[in-house]
Amino acid sequence: MSAEHHDAHLAHHFDTPIQQLESGKLGMWIFLSTEILLFGGLFCAYAVYRSNHPEIFVYAHRFLDTRLGAINTVILIGSSFTMAWAVRCAQLGKQKALVVLLGVTILCACGFLGIKAVEYEHKWKDGLLWGKRYKAKTEHGAHAPAAKAKGLLPPTAKVNPEVKSLIPLPAEAPHGLAAPGHAARAEHAAMEAPKNVQTFFSIYFLMTGLHGIHVIAGMVVLSWMLLRAIRGEFGPAYYTPVDLAGLYWHVVDLIWIYLFPLLYLIH
């Protein structure tokens, strides 16, 4: 069967390599859709809590370091670029470049996780954790010295918010005239911690944690691809696995593209 196609990679139940490649791609797109829906649940939780309690998000997001988040975004976009480039090299049979680019992609993933670890460490030290583990020391003015040294002062009532953002301090209106509703609550949040700040950190850790697990899974898959690329298994006639691994990696990037503004850039 497969002998007549001169193709060792063709499974017995497919007639042509094209049919096999297309099946693999369709399968991968379906799998990616399930990934989107998996994260969809968390995006749903995010949307429900943010729309009902914007003050929590406005207050708590400032404990995240936008600079580190932005650097991570750039790193992941870069890795997506090298991945797309790697697929191109596999299609064109550029063996050496394929190996190098896969290596760079994995390194980017390591860098991303490294920065994420630094961020998690800060949160851990400041007690800015999820749900029942939330014990913000900063609320009582006792900043961790390590955070202070790195200039990562979490803005609280005692810190000028301008350190982290350009939002002007809210003008103090006569209380009797203050408009009720979200706007007032949001402004109020700049001054003191609202109720249930831990909700933000629950969502932050769930979203970035699940994303981090996907990054690790991606690194495993890419390492396997790297190994097979070093063995010279891929070329213009057969590159489906690299292509599919690439699709997965881009989705990991895609999710971060949304996580970054949703978690770090709240106004």
């Binding site: 932005a70 750039v74 670029f81 191109r88 299609q91 213009p236 006639a237």
Partner: peptide
């Protein structure tokens, strides 16, 4: 493209997309 179905994306396009993504990241911040 040598027996494959997939399109090989030109290098220029890849670089342009990458650059655009970086610019948009700066823009969003």
């Amino acid at each position: 493209h040598g027996g494959s179905v997939s399109h090989v994306v030109p290098m220029k396009v890849l670089i342009a997309v990458w650059a655009a993504l970086l610019v948009l990241t700066i823009l969003t911040v």
